[in-house]
Nucleic acid binder design. Structure first.
Lengths: 244, 244
DNA sequence: ATAATTAGTGTAATAATTACAATAACTACC
DNA sequence: GGTAGTTATTGTAATTATTACACTAATTAT
């Protein structure tokens, strides 16, 4: 099946994962070689994006991109911002990159940013001939196009959602400990919390439910395991955040 | 000066105003007449939108649209969401409307939503042959295209910003009373607050500063006037909202 | 002078937040 | 089997924020 796509509209997905104590983002290597393929002109990293097809809406395009790459569906996937600066494809490397595709791209591409949360960084990445890897969000500089800017905006959106929705729990495995949860919150928000106070706060979240099960095979006191109940969360959340 | 515009990209602006105790939105009448202009085929309301030009970025397009309509620049103007459903222009009236323009429109138009806050509903509206009026946000049903959906999303974004930024104060006149401010919050959030508790909360906002001036010419006890200090707000706000 | 209208203020009870340190449960190693 | 190493778990007192609630003050219109 081949698709006709919109020349000046794309979707870029910022795919987040959480690994031990680091927030990660899934990136694709972009390597431009000379015509004879012998030498590398440059190599850098980019988000996972693609033009949208004429017969799909924005959410579907984002879901397709994530699915193609990770094989996973049914993930958190949320639009956060649209980027349309005139110079967003104007850096020298970006121009060289586009030249290899001839003239098929519009000189103006507006991209809609989505973020997606993966519950594990262990998923099999469907590579399709491109190198796709997890990077710590703190270590990526000089990405392709305006992708550093897009990542920054995705991060601030993620931080917001973490505090106002229960969205962070989508980044944890099905069964998790409160220490894992605390490390996630600390990694995303870039703070550290007092353990007791953190637990008091979590105790108020009735949708974080203790299981009758403990960690196994750890060389120290095993922790209580918890799960996230989407049901309870949806049923009990306040509709509007309060002002007073 | 004439501009070439992107065939499948537009910006729609949701322009909010506040009048006494009602949240208003600025809308344009859309009236389709028969070829001889004698009969009205249908008439409804739409947001203020336009295609973006090839040589302007998204923020500039939004600013241009608001400026053309109200003559005002330097307003709060913020992107909130992008709408790209496949059927967003597919209702019968919308098809009829587009037919009058021949085939110049793409059958797929993705629109970027912005909202803007006007400090007064008394601005002179530059009409350019179209009827533009303020409507209470509660009274608009059956708008053109997917504009009801866009308005809904703008509203929930506004509600969020009202509570996490000081953005609501952009809807008040330069000098305002605490009762006016309370009415604004009540109108936007759809709640009512206790007067004393509301004032206690406002007292914590050091960027809402009392003036050495009172209301004049009112047939009752004149209220203290306040102003919003953008300076103090920016200088003293916490960088990140807190989790704990 | 009086009525009408809106402005402005305090308090006590409850709930949330903060800062802070000792004990418990497990494994690894000797 | 005992000890060291490691992470998990729990409480309290002080401070601050939130809630519910009702009377007095200042002005204009009549």
């Amino acid at each position: 099946m081949s698709h006709k796509w919109e020349p000046n509209l794309s979707v870029d997905c910022v795919i987040f994962g959480f690994d031990v104590d680091q927030l990660k983002v899934l990136l694709v290597e972009r390597t431009l070689r000379t015509a004879d393929k012998k030498k590398i002109v440059f190599s850098d990293l980019s988000l996972t994006g693609y033009h949208i097809y004429e017969d799909e809406d924005l959410d579907s395009a984002a879901a397709r991109i994530v699915k193609d790459l990770t094989g996973l569906g049914n993930l958190v996937l949320e639009q956060f911002y649209t980027f349309g600066a005139l110079d967003r494809l104007e850096h020298p490397n970006d121009k060289l990159w586009h030249e290899q595709f001839g003239d098929v791209f519009s000189n103006r591409v507006v991209t809609v940013g989505y973020f997606s949360l993966l519950p594990s960084t262990n998923v099999k990445i469907a590579q399709k001939g491109r190198v796709v890897k997890w990077y710590s969000v703190n270590e990526v500089l000089n990405m392709a196009f305006d992708h550093n800017q897009i990542l920054e905006k995705a991060l601030s959106h993620l931080r917001y959602k973490l505090q106002h929705d229960a969205i962070g729990l989508e980044l944890l495995p099905d069964k998790f400990t409160l220490s894992q949860m605390q490390k996630l919150y600390e990694a995303v928000l870039g703070t550290s919390f007092d353990k007791r106070n953190f637990r008091k706060k979590v105790a108020q979240m009735n949708y974080v439910v203790p299981l009758k099960e403990k960690q196994k095979g750890v060389p120290h006191k095993p922790a209580q395991l918890y799960m996230f109940s989407r049901d309870i969360f949806i049923r009990t959340r306040k509709e509007r955040p309060y002002f007073i």
